[in-house]
């Protein structure tokens, strides 16, 4: 027997024994089995295992009979009717009242908390620009916070040497231009004409 064909048949044997091959393939396997002892032995072993499983599954079970199934039918229908009644029944008083009770309780708790609370007046705050704000400990953008300082003449720094300075708003640049404006030649004073 050709070893190559044995290999092919062995790969199909499980499906052959399980009756899952089409007619042509099954015929080919069957004719191989007629000739080949080792493949036939393998097919026999597969068949026996299958039969054993089936036999165990089909063995009679104590207490499983028509009477058990009739009783089971009654039980199932009783359970189904139970379920139907539960689905059809209006929600119990407790279940109907519960959402309102929960809402009421929440309102009372909220009211007791809020009742004595007075919103802080805007006049209680420090006037803007009079206090030094302490450096913040948390930095939402991951940069170290700088202490904010009052903007006054004393604290205005000199622009950088390149005249551009720093700052997104280009404040220093503007100030520098002011200086440039100052050095621009002035227009001649208006001449008073005598009439």
């Amino acid at each position: 027997m050709n070893l190559d064909s044995c290999e092919r048949v062995l790969a199909q044997l499980d499906w052959f024994v399980g009756d899952d091959l089409d007619a042509a393939a099954a015929t080919a396997v069957r004719s191989h089995l007629r000739e080949c002892v080792s493949c036939r032995a393998e097919a026999g072993a597969l068949q026996r295992t299958r039969n054993t499983l089936r036999a165990a599954a089909e063995a009679a079970c104590r207490g499983v009979d028509e009477a058990m199934f009739a009783a089971m039918h009654d039980e199932v229908m009783a359970a189904v009717r139970d379920q139907e009644m539960r689905d059809a029944a209006p929600p119990s008083l407790l279940r109907r009242v519960l959402p309102f009770a929960a809402a009421g309780a929440l309102f009372v708790v909220g009211w007791t908390v809020v009742r004595h609370w007075v919103p802080p007046s805007v006049f209680d705050r420090e006037p803007i620009g009079t206090s030094v704000v302490a450096p913040r400990q948390a930095h939402p953008f991951g940069v170290p916070a700088l202490p904010l300082r009052l903007l006054s003449d004393d604290s205005v720094e000199e622009p950088a040497a390149d005249g551009l300075g720093a700052g997104m708003m280009g404040r220093w640049r503007l100030r520098t231009l002011e200086g440039v404006d100052a050095t621009a030649p002035l227009l001649p004073p208006p001449v008073r004409r005598e009439h």
């Binding site: 499906w15 091959l21 089409d22 042509a24 393939a25 599954a57 089909e58 009679a60 499983v64 028509e66």
Partner: peptide, 23 residues
């Protein structure tokens, strides 16, 4: 070749298992 199996709708395949005590 594997046997082509019919779809569910075409033919409900007869089950081979015979329940003990059931016709």
């Amino acid at each position: 070749m594997l046997r082509p199996e019919p779809s569910d709708r075409v033919r409900p395949r007869p089950a081979t298992f015979v329940a003990p005590g059931a016709a």
